[in-house]
């Protein structure tokens, strides 16, 4: 097969890719880079957290971890990482164990388990998620990991983790909410219909009349 001479790399090509000898097959997701960013964020949190701890350390004795064990891990494995993720999901969408009158929470509908599904993006940054939360927890509440904290303390840790508005942790929070509220979960409790034959025969689905003035004849602007 005829090969063209190797030219200087395109400005958007990485130096390694520019060399055809090491050109790897395309990959669908650039997950490793996201993990890399999250790792940077984690190290930033680890570095910043002690300063925060100096200002906010409580004088009360820490509660025993067993006081705040979750009633279920919501599908997460019973490992240190699994307990952190379940506590994280419970912090984002509180479960019925601490909200008995409200809707089910993330752990009640199996949301933590989705973080461990290898087919979902969350599985790619589980380690970093646990690292960040535990690092901040141990800095703010010496000697105690995230899973061992009181729910109010977990709130403080998550607030700290989200202090940077560009933090990748925002995506972890959104995934926890998506996993919890989507149709198989809390959404159904709130009235989301799930599988259905359609509402076309239900007069309640539409007002059926014009609700505003139109300026086009067919929906397209000229």
């Amino acid at each position: 097969m005829r090969r063209l001479p190797v030219e200087p790399p395109h400005p958007n090509a990485s130096p390694r890719t520019a060399d055809p000898r090491v050109l790897a097959r395309a990959r669908l997701l650039a997950r490793r880079d996201f993990i890399g960013l999250a790792a940077v964020a984690a190290s930033a949190f680890v570095g910043a957290a002690p300063g925060c701890a100096a200002d906010e350390t409580t004088t009360e004795p820490p509660p025993a971890p067993s006081d705040f064990d979750l009633p279920t891990l919501g599908g997460a494995p019973d490992t240190p990482q699994g307990r952190i993720v379940a506590a994280f999901v419970d912090t984002v969408v509180p479960g019925r164990w601490r909200d008995p009158e409200g809707a089910p929470g993330g752990i009640d509908v199996g949301a933590p388990g989705m973080f461990f599904d290898p087919e979902l993006p969350a599985a790619q940054f589980l380690g970093v998620l646990a690292l960040v939360l535990d690092a901040i927890a141990k800095a703010e509440f010496p000697g105690r990991g995230f899973a061992a904290l009181h729910p109010d303390e977990r709130d403080r840790v998550l607030e700290e983790a989200l202090a940077d508005p560009t933090s990748p942790m925002i995506f972890a929070v959104q995934l926890a909410k998506l996993a919890a509220f989507s149709a198989p979960g809390i959404g159904r409790y709130l009235g989301y219909p799930g599988p259905n034959p359609g509402y076309v025969d239900d007069a309640d689905f539409t007002f059926g009349v014009a609700m505003a003035t139109e300026i086009t004849t067919d929906g397209n602007l000229p």
């Binding site: 958007n12 990485s14 390694r16 890719t17 790897a24 097959r25 395309a26 997701l29 880079d33």
Partner: peptide
């Protein structure tokens, strides 16, 4: 801009 990483995946 769209670039590619060392493995040729989009970034």
């Amino acid at each position: 801009a769209v670039a590619i990483d060392a493995a040729g995946a989009p970034d």
